[in-house]
Design a protein around this nucleic acid. Sequence first.
DNA 1: CGTGGGTTTGAGTCGGATCAAATCTCGTGG
DNA 2: CCACGAGATTTGATCCGACTCAAACCCACG
Lengths: 231, 231
Amino acid sequence: MEAKSSRSDVAAVLKASRVFKGLSEGCIHKILDKATYRDYAPQEWVYRQGEPARRFFLLESGLVALSEVTTSGNETLVRFIYPGDTMGCVAIAEIDHQVASAQALQACRIWIWSREAALKLLHEVPIAAVNLISAMIWDYYHYYQQVRRLRTDPLERRIEWSLLELSRALGESTAEGTVIEAGGYRQLAELAGTNIYSVSRELSKLEHRGILRKSRGRIVLFAPEQLLKSA
Amino acid sequence: MEAKSSRSDVAAVLKASRVFKGLSEGCIHKILDKATYRDYAPQEWVYRQGEPARRFFLLESGLVALSEVTTSGNETLVRFIYPGDTMGCVAIAEIDHQVASAQALQACRIWIWSREAALKLLHEVPIAAVNLISAMIWDYYHYYQQVRRLRTDPLERRIEWSLLELSRALGESTAEGTVIEAGGYRQLAELAGTNIYSVSRELSKLEHRGILRKSRGRIVLFAPEQLLKSA
DNA sequence: CGTGGGTTTGAGTCGGATCAAATCTCGTGG
DNA sequence: CCACGAGATTTGATCCGACTCAAACCCACG
């Protein structure tokens, strides 16, 4: 299932990723040589909340959803992971368990380092370490804001925000607008920290405002720029 | 106001801090030589949300409160900074503005690096870089949980949690219990993400349950272990 | 057609924010 | 020593957003 790196070409997305920024191709090769990669099928779990955290991940292609289960048992979609982003940082800090779950939403190729290999590399390649610090701070920063929104924004704004996030992750640009094949409101509800009933009501409001059109499992965003303008 | 490092003794708290863990005394000296330190008086601001973020901070002694203003204009106390903790990491990732405010609650001594000096040191001292990564992940992790609590826990539990945080930060152990000189409920309200009215009501409940006693600007915790046990 | 999911809608409920007002505490100055 | 005022605290009344549940609805598929 997993394969050693043996390709002489490094995917452009990896060269451009935040952790590898400023590194020579040779250096990137050296780092990838210490890793394995694995391809994940849609819906497959990369890791689950609570399981031992001993590996560090870098997404080369595809899309991953990071979600967590709250104490009250609700699933929350924390954010999406895009190519070039890292996952499972907690392994590096010797936090024993994953604090979230990661699930492939599309076919993904993911590079994997053991905790030990990752630590060794960070010591050997200071630029990578500093890059990782920067990357983590950005993640932190985005999480920070996301969470503040969830706590303080009213439902309407949370839904609008979630729509934008979802369209960025899953949207297909077409002539009539950005099409989101969401297959149900559950994802949207989890992003906005609410339930499918409230999602339905808010989407109806937005439809009346002419910002989108919805049909079974499919949303077409006409005017994304109108969102968050608190009409 | 600021002073160059020239002391031959390094405070024990710095040697034991998460960023300096595993570094030789000489190495720590080298790092501190690139810094200045400054003493802050209680209530003094270390930095304010929104101002340019160009410096990186390490708290040697005292206590700092990290707070943020939400979009709705409410002040929220994010967490306390203890000796050995870092502040202002965003400067390293070249995020232009502080995302939170830091205020000294007690007399503090704080070490300060410019962004450039910090970046240079992280490149030169890989152990420090890896340490910083670990430290940040821990911060991340704690923030993560804090925020999940704020979002999903009912008021009662949020207040109980906040009481424990506050007693850890400001509590004085005495014969009758842990005394918290809070000087009003505002701090508690900001920690719990609520208002002083709700704080008052919840504290009254806890007083009836015999877990604490309150008087003007002062709370005595008798049975902290009873908190969060959801009686 | 019928059945099963996704979707919509209405009614009920509740936690907790808000507002207003009463009450208390303590320091201050007369 | 007492009266006073500024805050802090308490309490009651009210209100509102949003969650919950139940039921109706609709579409797509077999």
